[in-house]
C-alpha cells in the first residue's frame, strides 16, 4: 500500500495528484457510456475521451511516481479510497443521464483548461511540457463539449443540469458515497490475487 508515502507528498506532486485523480475517475465514468450512448458515434467519441483522460492520468502519475518511489499503477489502484484527491464532481455516476453527462463534460473541460494553463506557465519545465502535451488533446475534448453545448442549450433539462452541477465544479474534500463503490470495482481484479502481475 502506498498510502503512508502519500501522506507526505512532495511540493511538486501536491497540485498534480488531484488533476491525475480527476482524469482517472472521470475517464472511468466516461467509459461507462461505452456501448450505451445515444449514438454509436458518441460511444466512439466518449471512448476516445476516456482513453485520453486515462492516458493523461497515467502520464501525471508517472511523473509523480518517480518522486515518490512508486509506480503509476500503484498510484492509480493501490491507494486507500481516502487517499484519492479527486473532486466529488467527477465521482458522480451520471449514466444514463445524457443531459447531466454533457453538462459535466462542458463544465469540467472549462475548469480543466484553466488549471492546465497554469501548469503550462509553471516554472517546472517537465510539468509545463507535459501540460502542453495534455492540452493538445484537450482541445478536441473542448470542441466536442462545445458542439454538444450548442445542440442542447435550448433544452430545459440541459439547463437544469448545468445549474445543478455548476456549484460542484470547484468542490474538494469528502468523497461521495458512490466513490467507495467505484473504488471497489476499479481495484477488484487487482486485489483478488495479492502481489500478482496483470
Amino acid at each position: 500500500m502506498v498510502s503512508t508515502v502519500l501522506r507526505r507528498v512532495s511540493a511538486r506532486a501536491e497540485p498534480l495528484l488531484p488533476i491525475a485523480d480527476d482524469e482517472l475517475i472521470l475517464g472511468w465514468r466516461n467509459s461507462e457510456w461505452t456501448g450505451i450512448a445515444p449514438f454509436l458515434e458518441e460511444d466512439v467519441a466518449f471512448s476516445s475521451i476516456a482513453q485520453n483522460e486515462i492516458g493523461h492520468a497515467r502520464a501525471i502519475y508517472q511523473l509523480v511516481a518517480e518522486e515518490l518511489g512508486t509506480t503509476a499503477d500503484e498510484l492509480a489502484f493501490d491507494r486507500k479510497p481516502e487517499d484519492y484527491r479527486c473532486s466529488p464532481f467527477v465521482e458522480l455516476r451520471l449514466v444514463p443521464d445524457w443531459a447531466k453527462t454533457i453538462a459535466r463534460h462542458c463544465l469540467y473541460e472549462d475548469a480543466d483548461q484553466r488549471r492546465i494553463q497554469e501548469l503550462i506557465e509553471a516554472d517546472d519545465p517537465e510539468v509545463a511540457g507535459l501540460a502542453a502535451k495534455i492540452d493538445r488533446e484537450e482541445v478536441y475534448h473542448r470542441m466536442h463539449a462545445q458542439m454538444w453545448f450548442e445542440r442542447l442549450e435550448d433544452e430545459p433539462q440541459f439547463q437544469e443540469a448545468l445549474e445543478e452541477l455548476r456549484p460542484l465544479v470547484d468542490q474538494r474534500g469528502e468523497h461521495l458515497p458512490e466513490f467507495e463503490h467505484l473504488w471497489q470495482e476499479m481495484t477488484e481484479v487487482r486485489r483478488s490475487v495479492a502481489g500478482a502481475t496483470w
Binding site: W28, S31, E32, T34, G35, D43, V44, S47, S48, A50, Q51, I54, G55, A57, R58, Y61, A72, D73, A76, F77, E185, M186, E188, V189, R190, W198
Partner: peptide, 17 residues
C-alpha cells in the same frame, strides 16, 4: 472498469471502441 492496470484499461477501452 475493473481492468487491473492502466495499460490494460487503455487497451481494453480501445478494443471495445
Amino acid at each position: 472498469l475493473r481492468a487491473p492496470t492502466l495499460q490494460r484499461k487503455l487497451a481494453l477501452t480501445a478494443k471495445v471502441q
